[in-house]
Computed example of a mutant assay.
Amino acid sequence: MTTASLYHMASPDEVGGDFYDLFPLSGDRWGFFLGDVRGKGVAAAAVTATARYTLRAAAVYDSDPVTVLRNLNTVVYQDYAAPEHRHCTYIAGGGRHHEPLQ
């Protein structure tokens, strides 16, 4: 499998809430997500870090999308009491790595 990514920041002076990841699941399966946390600055960056690592850990443990989202919702709701930092959108998917035919 070959992958590549390009990330273009909206502002070099202010950190945002965009995040993505590609990671191995069990066996020959891979998962990915692309997301965005509401806001900018340090507060958004903190939620972004929490969301990214929570999603990855939850998906490795149980890749069911409903379970992954429940885990993320629980963590973000508990860790960030301010309503303006509870909004996160993301898209996720996965697939199997197939060896080329010999």
Rank of each mutant, 00 (worst) to 15 (best):
D18R: 00
A43L: 10
D64R: 03
G16R: 08
Q102F: 04
D18K: 01
S63D: 12
A44W: 02
P24R: 03
L101M: 08
R96G: 00
V15C: 02
G17Y: 02
S26A: 09
Y61E: 14
P83Y: 07
R29D: 10
A81M: 08
H8Y: 01
V76M: 07
Y90F: 15
G95T: 05
E14Y: 02
V37Q: 07
V75A: 11
E84H: 13
H98A: 11
D13N: 10
D62R: 09
G31K: 00
G35C: 05
D28E: 12
D13W: 00
I91V: 14
L55Q: 07
P83M: 08
H97R: 09
Y20V: 00
R56E: 12
H97C: 13
E84W: 08
T54E: 08
P100S: 13
D62L: 08
L6E: 05
D36V: 02
D18W: 00
Y53S: 14
G94H: 07
G16V: 07
P83V: 12
A51Q: 04
A4G: 08
Y61G: 12
D18S: 04
Q78P: 11
V42S: 11
T54F: 06
P24T: 08
D36M: 02
N71A: 14
A57D: 06
A46S: 11
E99S: 14
E99R: 11
T50N: 07
A46L: 11
T54C: 09
T54R: 07
L25C: 04
A43E: 14
A92I: 11
T67C: 10
L69V: 09
T67L: 14
H85D: 07
D28M: 06
D28A: 10
T89V: 11
V37C: 12
L69D: 14
R52I: 01
Y77G: 14
R56Q: 14
S11C: 11
C88G: 02
S11N: 15
L25R: 06
L69A: 15
V37F: 04
L25G: 01
R70T: 14
E99A: 15
H8G: 09
V75C: 10
R70S: 15
V76T: 08
M1H: 06
V42F: 05
Y77S: 15
A59T: 04
C88P: 03
A59Q: 01
I91S: 02
T54G: 06
R86I: 01
H85V: 04
G94S: 09
V37W: 04
Y20D: 04
H98N: 03
R38V: 06
A45Q: 06
D79L: 15
E99D: 15
V60F: 01
P100E: 11
R38S: 05
Y80G: 01
G27K: 01
P12K: 15
N73L: 06
Y80V: 03
V68K: 03
D21A: 10
P12Q: 13
Q78M: 13
T50H: 12
N71Y: 01
F19L: 07
Q78S: 15
Y77H: 15
M9D: 06
A57W: 00
